[in-house]
C-alpha cells in the first residue's frame, strides 16, 4: 500500500507540472502572436498607405468620396515617371548616396579604431573617454545644429552636401564606437594575448583577429550608421537649400510640397523609393544585425 502511494504520488505531481508547463507555454505563444500581429499591422499601415497612394492617379487621390485604402480605379506608374523624369529626385538620390557612403566609411574607420583602443588597450583615462564619447551621443541634433551652423558657415561649407559628411559623424561615431567597444570586450582577452605571442602587432591584431571576429558587430554598426545618415533630416534642413545640393529627405519634401499644395502621389512614390536602399540592406544583413545587437549577452 505504502509502496503504491510512494510511486504514484510523484508521478501525478510530475504530470501536473508538465501539464502546467505546456499550458504556460501555449499561453505565452498565444500572447506573443497577438501582440506581434498588432505591432506588425500597426507598422505596416504607413508603407501600405504609401504604396496605395503612389499608385493612384491624382484625380483619385483628390476625390474625397473614394476609399483611401483601396485602389478602386486601377493603378498608374505616372507619379514614379514624373518623379524620376521631371524633378531633381535623382540628384537628391545621388547626393544622399555620396554622403551616406562617405559617412559610413569615415564612421567605421574612426569608431573601429577608437573602440579597439578604448576597449582593448587600457590606458590612463580610457574609461572616462569611453563614457565621454557616449555622452556626446546624448545631445540631440535638434540642439546641436545651431552651434554647428556657425562652424559649417565658418568653414565655408554652407549649402554643400560635403558639410553633411562632416556633421553626420557627430551622430554616428559615438554610437558606433559604443557598440564596437561592447563587441570587442566580448572577445576573450586570451585571443589578443595569443596573437601577441604569435607575433602580431596591434594593427595586425586588429585587422587579422578583431575585425574578422567582430564582423557581426561591425555590420550592425554599419547598418545603424547607414540608416542614420540616409534618413537624417535636421542637419540638411538647416544647412542645405539649393536643389543641386539637397539630399533625399529634405529634397523630396521641399520640392513636392509647394506652400499648401501637397503632391501626394509623388511624395509617396518618392518616400517609397527613398526607403528602398535601407530596406534592401536590412533584408540582406538582418541576421548579422541581430547577432550584432545581442552579442556579449552570453559568452559563446
Amino acid at each position: 500500500m505504502t509502496a503504491v502511494t510512494a510511486t504514484s504520488v510523484p508521478r501525478v505531481r510530475a504530470s501536473r507540472v508538465q501539464g502546467s508547463l505546456q499550458r504556460g507555454r501555449r499561453w505565452a505563444l498565444v500572447l506573443s502572436y497577438v501582440f506581434l500581429v498588432i505591432f506588425a499591422v500597426f507598422f505596416l499601415i504607413p508603407p501600405y498607405y504609401m504604396i496605395v497612394t503612389s499608385l493612384k492617379s491624382n484625380a483619385e487621390v483628390a476625390h474625397l468620396s473614394s476609399n483611401p485604402w483601396l485602389l478602386s480605379q486601377g493603378f498608374t506608374f505616372e507619379h514614379f515617371r514624373t518623379l524620376l523624369k521631371e524633378t531633381d529626385f535623382l540628384i537628391y538620390f545621388k547626393n544622399t548616396a555620396i554622403v551616406t557612403v562617405c559617412v559610413v566609411v569615415i564612421t567605421m574607420v574612426v569608431s573601429v579604431l577608437a573602440a579597439f583602443s578604448l576597449g582593448r588597450m587600457k590606458f590612463w583615462g580610457s574609461g572616462i573617454l569611453a563614457t565621454g564619447i557616449f555622452l556626446t551621443y546624448l545631445v540631440p541634433d535638434t540642439l546641436l545644429f545651431i552651434p554647428l551652423f556657425q562652424i559649417v558657415r565658418g568653414l565655408g561649407l554652407l549649402n554643400s552636401y560635403w558639410a553633411m559628411v562632416l556633421v553626420y559623424p557627430t551622430l554616428t561615431v559615438p554610437f558606433c564606437t559604443w557598440i564596437m567597444i561592447g563587441y570587442f570586450s566580448s572577445i576573450p582577452k586570451e585571443l589578443d594575448e595569443a596573437a601577441m605571442i604569435d607575433g602580431a602587432n596591434h594593427m595586425q591584431m586588429l585587422t587579422r583577429i578583431f575585425i574578422p571576429v567582430a564582423l557581426p558587430g561591425i555590420i550592425a554598426a554599419t547598418i545603424f550608421c547607414f540608416t542614420v545618415s540616409w534618413a537624417a533630416f535636421v542637419y540638411p534642413m538647416a544647412f542645405l537649400y539649393s536643389s543641386d545640393q539637397l539630399v533625399l529627405t529634405v529634397g523630396t519634401v521641399t520640392s513636392l510640397i509647394r506652400a499648401d499644395v501637397y503632391q501626394w502621389g509623388m511624395l509617396m512614390a518618392g518616400a517609397l523609393l527613398a526607403a528602398a536602399p535601407p530596406l534592401i540592406i536590412y533584408a540582406f544583413l538582418m541576421d548579422y544585425y541581430i547577432a550584432g545587437l545581442t552579442a556579449g549577452a552570453t559568452k559563446g
Binding site: 586570451e190 594575448e193 595569443a194 601577441m196 605571442i197 607575433g199 602587432n201 583577429i209 571576429v213
Partner: peptide, 20 residues
C-alpha cells in the same frame, strides 16, 4: 623584450583559438 620577440609559445586554458 615584447612577447613576440621572446620566442616562446603559450597554450591557454580556454585554448584561445582564432574562431574565424
Amino acid at each position: 623584450v615584447p612577447p613576440k620577440d621572446r620566442d616562446i609559445a603559450m597554450v591557454f586554458q580556454n585554448y584561445a583559438l582564432y574562431p574565424h
